[in-house]
Amino acid sequence: METAFFKTYFFNNQTDLKILFAGKAVCESLHSFGPAVRPNYIIHIVTKGKGRYQLDNDSYEVTVGQGFIIPPDTRTFYQADKEDPWSYYWIGFEGDLAGFYLDALGCSGHHPVFQTENMERIIEIIEESFLWDQESLFAELMLSARLYEFLALCKQTSENPVAKDQPRNPHIREAIAYIRSYYATPMTIQNLAEALCLNRSYLSSIFKQEMGVTLQQYLTDHRLTRAAELLGLNNFSIDEIAEYSGYRDTLVFSKAFKRKYAITPTAYRKTEYARQEQLKENAAHRI
């Protein structure tokens, strides 16, 4: 369990970067959230104790003085430590430029955990956000200013992030960011190359050389990974999940999914639901 305070906002004027909610919580031993897929960005700042954060297949121990980023449309799980459970603040946001800002600041899926050296001001920003109402344009602008400052402080404290290495070539990083943003659209490799103002053959060559897979393989794998997450976390139909994952033909999607996971989407959903129930049961026994 957790003792939490939570406040949501319903402003509609900001499109580049918009605060959605903020909160704080004191967690009990082994309190967990997920596995879940969120539709927006959330950044947690740990103010006491420690816990474990899992992003896709990567797991991190996060302690007091660190923060962790939850990207949208990505399966995550986090749990308080048994002996020293954490307390944290969080802020949720979205916007046309949210992903761009986080990538540019070095705070992304490549660097989901970071050190915080400006803890006092970060806490002040979130505490101040609790005080504003949800109706006036003045409040909306003040909250937007605090959100921008919050992200700037995350950049200042992320010089030594705790994360796996990211690609060295900036064109490859841009290609990966583009795929993660637009994988659900009818994207082709030619579309991607044109969006990055690069020659398709050149981009394909450097991507394969550094990443070890072709661009098409990476795009397909990303789409199917997102599909697997959706299958395990909601009741969308197979047709809907295929479309949300970038496939306009459900049969093509099902065949591709089975090639990757050696199981049909329907069977995968049943297996994943059973696995999640087992996780919950195991966690309950540990408390």
Rank of each mutant, 00 (worst) to 15 (best):
S29V: 04
F257W: 05
A145F: 02
S129M: 15
P72K: 04
H222P: 02
R248M: 09
T264I: 07
F236C: 08
Q14G: 03
P112I: 11
E120F: 11
E149P: 08
P39R: 07
E194M: 09
I176Y: 00
L151Q: 03
A193M: 00
W86E: 02
P35N: 05
P170G: 09
M119C: 11
E194N: 12
C107H: 08
D56K: 14
P265S: 10
R200V: 12
I189M: 03
A227T: 05
K18M: 03
E135W: 09
V46M: 06
L279R: 08
K164C: 07
K50D: 03
H44Y: 14
D165I: 14
L230C: 06
G23A: 07
L141A: 14
N235M: 07
T264K: 11
L20K: 02
R286I: 01
Y78L: 10
P72L: 13
Q278G: 03
T63V: 12
T3N: 13
K82I: 09
M1I: 04
Y41I: 05
G232E: 05
Y273F: 14
Q156P: 05
C197S: 15
L251R: 12
S87G: 10
S204W: 00
T185C: 06
Y60L: 08
C154N: 12
N169L: 09
P265Y: 04
R275A: 15
K50R: 12
C107I: 12
K208T: 10
Q216V: 07
G106H: 02
N234W: 04
E127L: 12
Y182S: 06
A145I: 11
L215E: 00
L198T: 00
R180L: 03
A22D: 07
I19M: 11
L233D: 13
D58G: 01
A242N: 07
L137Y: 11
F150R: 02
